[in-house]
Design a protein around this nucleic acid. Sequence first.
DNA 1: CAGGTC
DNA 2: ACTGG
Length: 272
Amino acid sequence: MPSLAAPGFDLDLTLRSGQFFRFRPDGDGFLLVDSGRVLRLRPQGDRIEYRGGTAAHVRRLLGLDADHGAALAALRRDPLLAAVLPRYAGMRIMTQDPWVCLVSFVCSSMSNMKRIQGNVEGIARAFGPALEDGIHDFPGPAALPAGALAPIRLGWRERFVAGLFARVDPARLHALAARPFEEARAALMELPGVGPKVAECVMAFSLGFGEACPVDVWIRRVGRRLWFRNRRVPDRRIADRFRATFGRHAALAQQIWFQAVRDGVPVGQAPR
DNA sequence: CAGGTC
DNA sequence: ACTGG
């Protein structure tokens, strides 16, 4: 089985951090679906063994191309993040297919990871081309028959997802990766069901914008606590503070704090 | 109550 | 405001 170098990389932590939903445990590794490929990955020391795709695809998907040493150095400039970093240094920012990422995070509002994963898998099973037995690629945007999404049980997110399937041009979506930050963000927010939080998720987890910082309820709590004496402030100020502090590593800082607070790590103290 | 949006 | 854990 081919393998690639991934020193210090934590596959389990990265996959379970809620950036990407098309994965499941598979033996002593994971099975992932991205961009028409079924990838089987297994951590082996400081390497990742892989089957089903190219090394370049795996490296890009898992965020292994980034200079992680430089990223960690940037994160350590903040003493409070430095305190929790030892436990989360293996986190990477993934770069998945933008269309799948967009639909996933539109499904994510007021939901939870298990349900989001079920919604995304359901859409793939119902409408996506089969790749292997029982494993389907995610379908590209196309006009879906009225009511076709009903069995997916998206609730009030259904009309947003239907709107995305009707309107999104994947090539245009990909092209946003080359646009300036504010322009890409504004373009995404034109889409149905996409507000600031979802827009920055798509930018961070699929378009390569390391300075993106999705502010959800958890990051709002952390940001207020860290920098605003626990006062209410607009989400935009929290995101801008992450960017001012961590620059193009804001997305990684956000993802580490997100995971840490969900693990119950107290903000502003070293983890036990 | 859950990683918001209109 | 849907829906499910």
